[in-house]
Design a protein around this nucleic acid. Structure first.
Lengths: 119, 119
DNA sequence: CTTTCATATGAACAGATGTTCATGTGTTAT
DNA sequence: ATAACACATGAACATCTGTTCATATGAAAG
């Protein structure tokens, strides 16, 4: 019995080849985790709604909350997370904080998702 | 005081315009939830790894588990979720279940994410 | 038909996540 | 200075998620 990889299912030669080649092609772990964390941002409906809104127009926190019918506190918590991920940014204007998309990738990523969901 | 929208922050006229227009442009709730659920699939590093592997080659469950160093059970649970989302599919070949990407959107979505993560 | 290999699945558990509630900070107006 | 508005934040809580462990199913080999 071949001892190269005792855990691999069977098929003495062929599988080991493919598995080895694919292993080489995988991005490093840091990249994988970053990638998953990025998509995690799009994986919550509240954050998704916020980003959709900001795709149309920059807007203050209060208006986002009102428009979406979600509490100001919940919006604020999610905005903090989105800012940490560098997906949105903001500036102060008097009493208001105006939020806007910080990255054009947001549009393309959501676009790809939409074209999948809409068959 | 304007009574059109007593919860809106201030700016009697202008904000109401924008808010109203953006509200019209939002996809319906079902679409939003579907979209978030789709991205949720990409928001876990185990699932991300599985999809990366299958982008290179179709592969049986056992080899995926071995290659990624993740328990067979964990892989199997995640595969079930990915199949429910129609992102991967499988066929039986003797004792093995061969998994493969069921949707080309997977490639484009991950591609968009990667180009963001890699600056 | 019993064993072995490949995979699936349910229960249990720990940790992550998102909301609410109460309160704090910062800005403008009176 | 004080009040009112816009927003941020911490704690508490319930829910969701992903893994492990044990066990079940299903195909092939002896």
């Amino acid at each position: 019995m071949d001892e190269i990889n005792e855990l691999m299912c069977e098929e003495p030669g062929t599988h080991a080849d493919v598995v080895g080649r694919v292993r080489e092609s995988l991005p490093d772990d840091d990249t994988l985790y970053e990638l998953a964390d990025l998509f995690k941002m799009f994986g919550d409906s509240t954050r998704m709604k916020i980003m959709f809104v900001l795709m149309e127009s920059e807007m203050c926190v209060c208006d986002i909350a009102e428009l979406l019918g979600i509490s100001q506190s919940a919006i604020s918590h999610q905005l903090r997370i989105l800012k940490q991920s560098k997906l949105i940014s903001s500036r102060r204007e008097g009493k208001n904080i105006i939020c806007f998309l910080a990255d054009d990738h947001v549009r393309s990523i959501i676009g790809q998702g939409l074209s999948h969901v809409l068959e």
